[in-house]
Amino acid sequence: MAETLRSILARRLVIVTGKGGTGKTSVVAALALAAARSGLRVLVAEVGRDEHVPRLIAPGTKPVGYAGRALRPGLTVMRIDPFEALAEYLGLQLGVRAVVDLVFRNRAFRQLMEASPGWRELITLGKIWHLEQMTTPDGDPLHQLLVVDAPATGHGLTFLDVPRVAGSAVRAGPLRKHAGWVEAMLGDPERTLLLPVALAEELPARETAELALRVRRDLGVPVDRVVVNCLVGAPFPPGLDDLDERVARLPAAATFPGLPPPGVLAACGAHLRARHELGRHWAAQIARMTGLPLVPLPYLANGIRGPDDLAQIATPLLAAPEAVAA
């Protein structure tokens, strides 16, 4: 892994995905914030029923909705609601938006659409493609970086596979053409990057490895690194790696001013060391199973509450990924 990877920010479209609880949304927000600070025009698109990114970037802000809103200079956040996107698309095709709106207000019609497969993913990806194509009056990309908070792993693959399925199932018509455009965008390593976010624990590690392999093998979506979130750092400086054991050997009855007993001091260190070693073990497993370099992010004890915490993970997120010796 000696070759230098292109920066995440050199892509136009970054699709962030990961199992629930891995901190995928924090990665999306940190990436978007850092990109906007570096001067890029950034759009974050959330895909899902709830908005999570706005409150990380601007705590206390109101929902941004489908129309989206700039939360900071150069940083807009929107949520792609499939019904809104479909209404927009059909309005364009039909030429009369009012008719579409009338029908979409009908509960029964919505139930029918709720029950129909595939279109949500396709229309969402279509909207992303459309956003990616938008230009300024000068012909530059309107959104220089588009960050998508994609559904958790299980659905992550279905989501990306839909254009291919649609392309093969649909015989003719505009949809086939449009699905082809979306597929071309997703497979273009110059434009697109799929960024999996994992935790260095057994289940997320295995799931992420499977995701990365299937994305590369079956879907042809570019993936060149894995983000490993919440890594607990080494608790002791080099040379003192087994300090907790040394502390544990002190006489149990010894007392030190202002400190808990030696057994408690040792247990604190031992716990942190065990989590650190476990993290290293599973990070190495992720590297071995995927063959990809890793982007390690530190564990923040108080979680991610707002822009200051995001800034702490943005620097390592944008640093060159590490090849971990397995």
Binding site: P235, L240, L243, A254, L259, L265, C268, G269, A301
Partner: peptide
């Protein structure tokens, strides 16, 4: 006090070790 207990013969790393052990306990407590 902890440095003296960890390195009774005043070996060089007593203070570093004491600070590290205390830091770890402080982090874990939080």
């Amino acid at each position: 006090a902890l440095a003296a207990a960890l390195a009774p013969n005043a070996e060089g790393d007593g203070e570093t070790a004491a600070r590290a052990a205390i830091h770890a306990a402080s982090e874990y407590a939080s």
